[in-house]
């Protein structure tokens, strides 16, 4: 039984296979997929059946990557409107509207973060960034345009080399950028004034879940008294962690690190490929959100004030992410 529109399946597998990557792009693609699913629904025009269908699409999308909170946050944001819909057409319309809203707001958020974050960087600074983050790159490019950045070190970021994406984007904007291997972070950190990274998930205590290696970059920065800024849109804050949920760290295929032949030749070597790590709040100087610069320990403020709707909604589902209860099924 394959009743999902092809484009929705494409987006889902794109996220799973990391063709679509980065928490922000994943979130916008998710909203887009929900909108497409709603618009191309061709079943019986019945509110309950439509809700069931949207819940299934939502669950499919959430299942693609386990760590990034932007996925469930987007799905909950878009689908929670179904709770108060009283007819099929109203329901469909509300999904489309919410999805459009989300996409627009998230793009605006990234822009606002660039402007706010750039102000935090003093003139003639050297910046280091790890992996690829649209929000972090936005901050760096904006700061460069304002004459604040003279050089950027970008880690190549094994196993997927997202640093090469960062390098390309910065170079295209004219930012002087130098790639370094991940192992050279401590070697280079004395030259660096600011570390600017993105986030996949911000927990309620202000810990930041981001690309593997971020926590040791932050540790090396702390040791060298180099400031660490995390650029993160509010939809990366995790309401689930406020109610005690742990963030699952995704392990991906060993073949991202070594070739299949190598793995087969070495059966007793286990290749472990965790994709994210957790940077504790004490290694982060500030989180830059579209609402302003906050100390990581104040993450809960964003959660309560800006993601209050999500907390309410989670209340309906009794502390577990249960889309059926969220849409009042």
């Amino acid at each position: 039984m394959n009743m999902y529109p092809e484009r929705v399946l494409e987006i889902a597998s794109g996220i799973r296979e990391m063709k679509i990557r980065g928490a922000g792009r994943i979130a916008r693609a998710t909203a887009e997929a929900l909108k497409i699913a709603a618009l191309s629904y061709n079943g019986v025009e019945d509110l309950v059946l439509f809700k069931k269908y949207m819940v299934e699409v939502g669950e499919l999308l959430i299942s693609t990557r386990p760590t990034a909170i932007s996925l469930p946050n987007t799905v909950v944001y878009v689908l929670s409107s179904l709770r108060n819909s009283s007819s099929f057409s109203e329901a469909r319309e509300s999904v489309v509207k919410r999805a459009d809203n989300f996409i627009r707001e998230s793009e605006e958020a990234t822009k606002r973060i660039s402007l706010i974050g750039a102000k935090r960087i003093k003139e003639n600074s050297i910046v280091l960034t790890h992996c690829h983050s649209t929000a972090a790159v936005g901050v760096i490019i904006e700061a460069y345009k304002q004459g604040r950045v003279v050089r950027v070190y970008s880690t190549e970021t094994r196993p997927f080399y997202q640093g090469r994406v960062t390098y390309t984007q910065l170079a295209k904007s004219g930012v002087p950028v130098v790639q370094i291997p991940d192992s050279a972070v401590r070697y280079i950190i004395n030259e660096v004034d600011y570390v600017v990274v993105g986030a996949d998930t911000v927990t309620s205590n202000g810990a930041v879940v981001n690309k593997i290696g971020t926590s040791q970059v932050a540790l090396a920065a702390k040791e060298a008294r180099t400031r660490v800024y995390v650029a993160a849109e509010s939809y990366k804050f995790s309401p689930l962690t406020l109610i005690g949920e742990l963030v699952t760290i995704e392990y991906r295929s060993p073949e991202e690190i070594v070739s299949r032949e190598w793995i087969e030749k070495h059966p007793r070597v286990k290749v472990l490929n965790p994709v994210f790590d957790v940077t504790p709040p004490e290694y982060i100087d500030a989180i830059i959100t579209e609402y302003g610069v906050i100390p990581p320990q104040a993450a809960v403020l964003i959660l309560v004030e800006k993601l209050g709707w999500a907390l309410d909604v989670l209340g309906y589902s009794e502390g577990k992410l249960d889309l059926k209860r969220i849409v009042a099924l």
Partner: peptide, 9 residues
Amino acid sequence: LIVDSAVRF
């Protein structure tokens, strides 16, 4: 076998 970035993990 791990990547260099996974040491702290």
